[in-house]
Amino acid sequence: MSPTDRQTLDPQRVQQALVCMLFDPSYEARIRGEEAVAEIAAAERELLRKLDPRALRTDPMRRPRAVQAILEEYPVSAALLGVPTVDAYFASTHFREAVFKRGSMALAFADYLGDRARGVGRIEAAMARVRRPRDAVRSGIGCGPRVAPLIVPRGSLAWYQEGRARLGADPLQALAEQSRPWRRRPPRGGAEHLLVEGGEDGSIAIGGASEALVRLLLAAVDPGPKSALIDAACRLGAEPAEAEELLGDLLGDSLLMIYR
């Protein structure tokens, strides 16, 4: 049964819709309009429609603050796409999904970004992921919670690093002064294999790795049985005995972890 059919009133859903209204006048207009809104029930919508529209505009800096939080994590992608594209995220279904499904707006931004910033966007998305080590939902062996393996177009890391340097010591200021998105685009061909690793202290290291290692870690993004990872290692060229040893080494290096 969809929320719109429900007779019961869920205060959390009302509050989630209210948050979206506070960030996005176009969503507020939908709530007040006639068009169906799938995520909330009629009774919930009715409560929200009774609000004085002016009461939603007492904090004009709410959305700019949220935009700033995204710019801090995706500065090079923002320079490529332009700040207005980042701002438009807050009127997207990706943002609303993060609100309604207890997600992270920084991680949902990666979905909104898609491949528009190519490898650079994926590098910044991976950095956002390792800042937020997630709890494993399954037991088994999986990637360390602060490890993100990546395959991006060749030359993406160097492009990202140059872009980041171009934004200087104060990327927010640089983005505020940017009159239009960068014209030069990141690479799109070939492949580069990277590991993004986060530290407990908030530091992040990004470096190249062998294709086999990155592909093995990609196979371990969701934890699973050891046998599945040994099979994956063998498919990538390891002998069974080597595969066993390799897994031991990766566990020792915290690139893999046992989730119970």
Binding site: V14, V19, V99, M105
Partner: peptide, 21 residues
């Protein structure tokens, strides 16, 4: 906070003033 407890998610809104809350 909205969504998960995360950077940039903090705010403070009153409860929805209905019995169900």
């Amino acid at each position: 906070h909205f969504g998960a407890r995360d950077r940039g998610h903090m705010l403070l809104l009153p409860p929805v003033l209905v019995d169900e809350s």
